[in-house]
Structure formats: C-alpha cells, structure tokens
Amino acid sequence: MNKERAVNVAAVVVGVMLLVVAGFYFAESASSLPSWLPGHEAGSSHHHVKHGIAALVVALGLGVLVWFRTGPQTRAAAGR
C-alpha cells in the first residue's frame, strides 16, 4: 500500500470511529458513556451534545479530505 492510500484509509477509519463516538455522545448520558471517552461522569444524566457535534465535525472534515484526495484532479497531479 503506498503512502497516499495509507493516509486515505487511516482518515476513513478514524472518521468512521468518530462517527460512532458522536453517536455515543448524542445517544448516551454522561454516566452511560464508556469510561475511556472524555465526558464520562458517573451518576450524571447530562448529554454531551457539544462533544458529539465536535466529533461529527471532525469526522465530516476527514470525509471531505478523503473525497478531495481521491478526486480526479489529485489523482492526475499525483500521476504527473
């Protein structure tokens, strides 16, 4: 796998993971979040919606990045 492709695959994997994390933040209260996620707080019923939006924004950003990196202009430039 060349470097370009590896970066794209990594961005997709991280983006999908962030989408899952965003889903956790939107759906679960702070006490129900996995303990390794920022915002986990035992006994709290608060939903960390802002954390979810932040994760979603970064995931979308990575998606757009990969969309451009795999586009015809980039491929043409890389092939030159």
């Binding site: 451009f68 795999t70 586009g71 202009q73 980039t74």
Partner: peptide, 9 residues
C-alpha cells in the same frame, strides 16, 4: 462546484 469536481479548480 469543488465538491462536485472533487478538487478546487
């Protein structure tokens, strides 16, 4: 346009 063309012309 750029999203459609997958690049900034």
């Amino acid at each position: 346009r750029s999203l459609r063309d997958r690049g900034i012309a």
